[in-house]
């Protein structure tokens, strides 16, 4: 298990031959398009899992696969909606912020040894995009001046207090292992099968749990649960709702691809081209996330706080400590 340089990882990468591509406008546009595709694929997985498909039952599978497109079109056609004395500014900001943050988080996805925005703190970039959702979702719940929506907004904050620290420790563990906060360095450090998942399984699981929680998806859907008539979403219709739902799906899709890059070595793998490996790993992460998440009942924030602070937090700190000791021992090269 030796560490290879970033340049080598780039050449074994997805075959993005021309480096000038990465400094052009097309790279940014391409990443936005890619993030939208990730969101759509995730929504497909989700719709199939929600329908509770038994293997081979095409009667459910086919309509479920069409569901994300149909629901998206339905919202595009639908009328928007406004309540009495809402905070229009906050609503507009929030409704745009959710998809914008989701697409922004894709900027640090490492692709073939590059990413659109490669900073010395890519991991912090993702962390910041996700943390800003606190503001966005709270504004979303506050703006319509409706009681269920307001309860949902504060549920999201309570949930945030529980998932955020374990998630941050999971992200930092990746940085410690790679000795760098740059996403491309993280991928380079995993070349040759030295995937971080072997030494950081807890961090991977907590990262996925955090992704489900910050998109208030599946078992962490309390801020938009049925008991408060969809909470933060309860007063949204038409384009407004579409933007928020799009943002949630894209964010979860990008987080799946990010997990594939940070913990599963992105393009690293034998025989097949790197891009194939990256796609296969991303799909596997999505299938795992959706397959487990859609089998679990709702986790109320007040039930989750205990577990997050007393179990997940010590576990992730232990995970970071183990990785730090391994770094000292020269394990990661």
């Amino acid at each position: 298990m030796t560490r290879t340089s970033g340049t080598r990882a780039a050449t074994t990468g997805a075959g993005m031959a021309d480096p000038t591509t990465w400094t052009s406008v097309w790279a940014g546009l391409g990443v936005v398009a890619g993030a939208l595709v990730l969101g759509l694929v995730l929504a497909w997985f989700d719709a199939v899992a929600r329908a509770g498909v038994r293997v081979g039952s095409r009667a459910v599978l086919v309509p479920a696969a069409a569901a994300p497109v149909r629901e998206g079109m339905r919202l595009l056609l639908g009328q928007r909606r406004t309540t009495v004395a809402p905070d229009r500014l906050l609503r507009t900001l929030a409704v745009c912020a959710v998809p914008v943050l989701a697409l922004t988080s894709a900027a640090v996805l490492p692709l073939g040894g590059h990413s659109v925005v490669s900073t010395s703190a890519d991991l912090v970039w993702f962390n910041a995009a996700e943390a800003l959702l606190w503001v966005a979702v709270w504004m979303l719940g506050w703006a319509p001046n409706a009681v269920h929506s307001l309860v949902g907004a504060y549920r999201f904050l309570a949930q945030g207090l529980a998932y955020e620290l374990p998630l941050m420790f999971a992200i930092i563990t990746v940085g410690v292992g790679a000795g760098s906060l740059r996403a491309t360095d993280v991928v380079a450090a995993q070349a040759g099968g030295a995937w971080f998942v072997w030494t950081m399984p807890v961090a991977l699981l907590v990262f996925l749990l955090g992704a489900a929680a910050f998109t208030f998806w599946g078992p962490f859907g309390a801020p938009a649960a049925r008991d408060i008539a969809e909470g933060v979403l309860s007063e949204l219709a038409g384009l407004d709702r579409l933007l928020v739902e799009l943002g949630r799906a894209v964010f979860l899709g990008v987080a799946s691809a990010t997990a594939a890059a940070w913990f599963l070595g992105a393009e690293d793998g034998p025989v097949l081209p790197g891009a194939w490996w990256y796609a296969i790993k991303t799909l596997a992460v999505m299938a795992f996330l959706v397959g487990v998440g859609r089998r679990l009942p709702l986790v109320r924030p007040e039930r989750f706080a205990d577990i997050a602070w007393m179990v997940l937090l010590p576990l992730t700190i232990l995970q970071t400590a183990v990785v730090a000791v391994l770094v000292l021992g020269g394990f990661y090269g």
């Binding site: 990465w22 400094t23 052009s24 406008v25 097309w26 790279a27 940014g28 546009l29 391409g30 990443v31 936005v32 398009a33 939208l36 595009l76 056609l77 745009c96 998809p99 914008v100 697409l103 922004t104 900027a107 659109v116 925005v117 038409g238 384009l239 579409l242 933007l243 799009l246």
Partner: peptide, 21 residues
């Protein structure tokens, strides 16, 4: 420039959806 492309892309998504709606 790539970052500008990203911003442009996000802008296109938002305005595109707004226009389509």
């Amino acid at each position: 420039i790539a970052l500008a492309g990203l911003v442009l892309g996000i802008g296109l998504v938002l305005t595109g959806l707004q226009a389509a709606a």
